[in-house]
């Protein structure tokens, strides 16, 4: 991974602090404090950490949906201020348009975006491509409420991909799925991300998860976060060979990495649980 360190980062978070101020009570919540993080071109970065440590906060700021209170946020040398088509987001609750069919959902970005919307025929080609890619063929004309959880997930994923972003931001996209579907979608995600492609041709992915196994299986690097206030504790490099296969999970190296991350966050994970009850 030395090659990574020599590159200029794609996205750069420099000393980011985010404080939420409740509109009515004026109560302040320090969500994250002094977070610095570089994300490189073509890298698959996972963020893990206890509940409430500020993972979504970080992702939303990269997406441009929230602004940091202090610190700077840069992509390709330009500060991030607003959402943009070059940064696609897959939300935890999918946020599909209920009144649009699968096809219309996926076509939304290419059709209505401000920067270079596509003609009907180009759109048609792209939409068909991504519908096939996420195996939603046959469900094009269904509405989101007619889909299973896994299908909705794939539709949200295809909607983000069809807009052809350079960066893909995913906030616990598989959290609501059953274990089998999750395993299948993890493999599919790696394939779609371009595991077989050279790094320059891959998308840059920031992926939030609660699953340590999931993080180790998917990531090039795992950022481990910690609470009170939220900050990045360590960044672990996952030097497992690609393309990754199911069998990898059973290997000793995989288990060792997963266990190391678990040791880092278990203390706080317990505390978070106790706080809740």
């Amino acid at each position: 991974m030395e090659t990574l360190e020599k590159m200029t980062p794609k996205i750069c978070l420099g000393g980011i602090t985010k404080e939420y101020i409740a509109p009515r009570t004026g109560q302040r919540t320090l969500a994250i404090a002094d977070v610095s993080l570089d994300v490189f071109q073509g890298e698959f970065l996972c963020i893990v950490g206890p509940s409430g440590c500020g993972k979504s906060t970080i992702l939303n700021m990269i997406a441009g949906l929230a602004r940091p209170s202090r610190g700077e946020l840069v992509m390709d040398g330009k500060p991030i201020r607003d959402p943009g088509a070059e940064r696609g987001v897959v939300f935890q609750d999918y946020a599909l348009f209920p009144w649009k069919t699968v096809r219309e959902n996926i076509e939304f970005g290419p059709r209505y975006r401000t920067a270079g919307p596509l003609s009907a025929s180009e759109r048609d080609r792209i939409v068909r491509h991504y519908i096939d890619l996420v195996s939603l063929t046959g469900a094009e004309n269904k509405y989101p409420h007619e889909l299973s959880g896994g299908m909705r997930q794939r539709c949200a994923f295809a909607r983000a991909l069809a807009n052809e972003p350079e960066v893909l931001l995913m906030d616990e996209p598989f959290a609501a799925l059953d274990a089998q579907t999750r395993l299948i979608l993890q493999e599919e995600l790696l394939r779609i991300w371009g595991e077989e492609l050279p790094r320059a041709a891959r998308k840059t992915v920031v992926f939030i998860t609660h699953g340590i196994d999931e993080a180790v299986y998917l990531a090039d690097r795992v950022a481990v976060m910690s609470n009170n206030p939220g900050h990045i504790k360590t960044i672990m490099t996952v030097d497992l060979p690609r393309p990754r296969r199911e069998s990898l999970r059973a290997t000793a190296e995989f288990q060792k990495l997963a266990d190391a991350i678990w040791q880092l966050i278990r203390h706080e994970a317990y505390e978070a649980t106790i706080d809740r009850h």
Binding site: A63, G64, L65, D82, P83, G84, A85, E86, R87, G88, V89, F91, D93, A95, L96, F97, P98, F108, G109, Y112, R113, T114, A115, R159, A160, N163
Partner: peptide
């Protein structure tokens, strides 16, 4: 949520109002 989703797809505020 769907408004945020539309914004991250690079759609302008006016278009969001309409679509």
């Amino acid at each position: 949520g769907v408004i945020r989703a539309a914004r991250t797809l690079g759609v302008s505020r006016f278009t969001i109002l309409r679509t």
